[in-house]
Design a protein around this nucleic acid. Structure first.
Length: 157
DNA sequence: GCCAACGTTGGC
DNA sequence: GCCAACGTTGGC
């Protein structure tokens, strides 16, 4: 029964929330706000468990790639930015009585050397990673135990 | 700034 | 329920 640790890759734009920001946050934890994709939301709602491993990925920046390791800390809750008209994540169609979008807390584990997207693509054992698939845009993707192990080993090397 | 890819929207 | 148009993502 469900004690198996799962693994995820979560994209963040470093200008908005970098691995350094996560490390500097209170309790080294930040709520993951701004997810506006149903598949990604469902991962948070249905599948993520406290203790799950997270590859913290910097996207939309000069050096895209894995920048650190984090973990799911729980705290699943409505993402309040959906109700804030001044937020870029405001969703006028979301109802306070039935919030459409959720957040979950992510806790810093460690910073790593940057494992660049280029280098990830060059590693045959990572070819199956969802984030590397053509046309992928999901900001949260599952990582298999094998993929996780390969990334950990390469980050050590 | 470009553009491929893909999710969402809305007319029918 | 189909599907064209549109908007967004994100690497380059």
């Amino acid at each position: 029964m469900g004690s198996t640790t799962q693994f995820w890759l979560m994209k963040s734009e470093p200008e908005e929330a970098s691995i350094d920001d996560l490390q500097a946050a209170p309790n080294r934890t930040l709520p993951w706000t701004g997810v506006r994709n149903y598949q990604a939301r469902n991962f948070m709602r249905d599948s993520m468990r406290p203790g799950d491993g997270v590859l913290f990925y910097h996207s939309s920046c000069a050096q895209p790639g894995i920048a650190g390791v984090a973990e799911i800390a729980g705290g699943l809750a409505p993402d309040l930015t959906q109700f804030d008209p001044r937020s870029p994540y405001f969703d006028p169609k979301s109802d306070v009585a039935a919030p459409r979008w959720l957040q979950i807390d992510v806790r810093f584990v460690r910073k790593t050397r940057l494992f660049a997207l280029d280098d990830m693509r060059r590693e045959p054992r990572l070819a199956s990673m969802r984030v590397l698939q053509r046309g992928n845009r999901l900001s949260i993707t599952p990582v298999s135990p094998d993929e996780w192990a390969v990334v950990m080993a390469l980050l050590q090397a």
